[in-house]
Design a protein around this nucleic acid. Structure first.
Lengths: 230, 230
DNA sequence: AAGTGGTCTAGACCACTGT
DNA sequence: CAGTGGTCTAGACCACTTT
């Protein structure tokens, strides 16, 4: 692991533990240099990375601070759908449509950079108050999560399970508007011709890709929201 | 202007001019060091910035390459579409469909919390390399930007103008998938039944709402991308 | 073997902020 | 004034890819 990653973890650990709350001052670059025996350029890179990813914010001459949650409240939350629904005060229910081991297609092998020939595949429908909100069509690298087929996905979300077995360090989201494929539209209860919001989510554990998911949402019932103060 | 910004411009200029097309090899760090008389760390920072913003991609031991199209805007960024297109090394052009003063509907009055009875309304199509990328259907409070009707929106984006007359302090985005309305689909060059990605953007200047915009994008050509390192 | 990116160092000067 | 971040240098070693 590169040194600057260690510096990032050093800072993130304190933020996650609650020791450094939003708005709090983070140790200065010079101080990190002394604490961790790295050069200033290394500390600078670590902190600059965290600023770029929205975790910290800096004011020249003044200091570096843990960013407010509201600015981290980007539309593409990493959180799982179950928590989000419950946070809105509604009932979440998940129905497993299928969960199986498949021979990986060339496309999936490419997306996940799979080494083996097979892949785990699951399709789960998430309901908010008995209305289908999301169809989760997910591919998981068996090398990362060998026990995936035994998980009861109606009780534990894939995201929660993956976080347990292989701490995710990186998430990529791509948001698109699409006409949903034929196997998805009925699961979402969509009329013909209705649009769907598709989020393609790839997660990394270390250098390896852990999973890839197509998250389809009814265009008429789902939206991403983000507020930014400048 | 910092040196690394000059290095970035040096590279972006060649991409914009078409000298370096997507997939093409970019000058190596060592070569940039010789060409521009900067240290390698400075060249490295410039290139790494461009990689982070999706303009370039790197393969260790092999080289740095101009990234393919498709990797589009960051949902977190408030930047205007013109800047975004130019940063991808492409040509931006805007066509004004209409710009006028209207009697505000109840819905628009509510969204903008208008005090007066009229509102400015503009429809502009933004092209990326002559392909329609965004239809901007915008309502502006005349109290905030009285000179809006005189702005040449094919040369200055609404966002740029509003930033000038009434510095924006807050932006809200809502992202949806929709079937585009009849007046929008042809402007985007969409076939019947194609989906569109809609961003509803509200901007605040101080406590007042300055403008409200429907930003329609062709689902097949536009996506939002976000990467988060944890 | 030569070239490429990935990382790291130990300094440096600057503008700005806060005391 | 001391402290902070912003930038920059001129080297270095490494793992990897290409020739």
């Amino acid at each position: 692991m590169p040194l600057y990653e260690k510096v990032k973890h050093h800072v993130l650990k304190r933020i996650r533990s609650g020791e450094w709350r939003p708005g709090a001052r983070v140790h200065s670059e010079h101080r990190l240099v002394r604490e961790l025996n790295v050069s200033r350029m290394t500390a600078n890179r670590a902190i600059r990375d965290l600023v770029n990813s929205g975790v910290l914010s800096r004011i020249a001459g003044s200091g570096t601070f843990v960013a407010d949650l509201r600015s981290a409240g980007h539309p593409l939350q990493i959180r799982n759908i179950a928590a989000e629904i419950r946070e809105r005060g509604h009932v979440h229910r998940a129905a497993v449509v299928s969960i199986e081991r498949l021979a990986a297609s060339a496309q999936i092998r490419g997306r996940l950079k799979l080494r083996g020939r097979s892949v785990f595949h699951s399709v789960v429908v998430h309901y908010e108050n008995d209305l289908p909100l999301q169809v989760e069509d997910r591919y998981v690298d068996p090398a990362i999560a060998p026990g995936y087929l035994e998980v009861n996905l109606s009780e534990v979300t894939s995201h929660e399970y993956l976080m347990e077995v292989a701490p995710l360090e990186r998430v990529e989201h791509v948001v698109k508007a699409v006409v949903p494929p034929a196997h998805v539209a009925p699961l979402l209860g969509l009329a013909a011709g209705e649009a769907a919001l598709l989020i393609e989510r790839t997660t990394w554990s270390g250098q390896r890709r852990a999973s890839f998911a197509f998250l389809y949402h009814a265009g008429s019932r789902f939206e991403l929201r983000g507020v930014f103060d400048l």
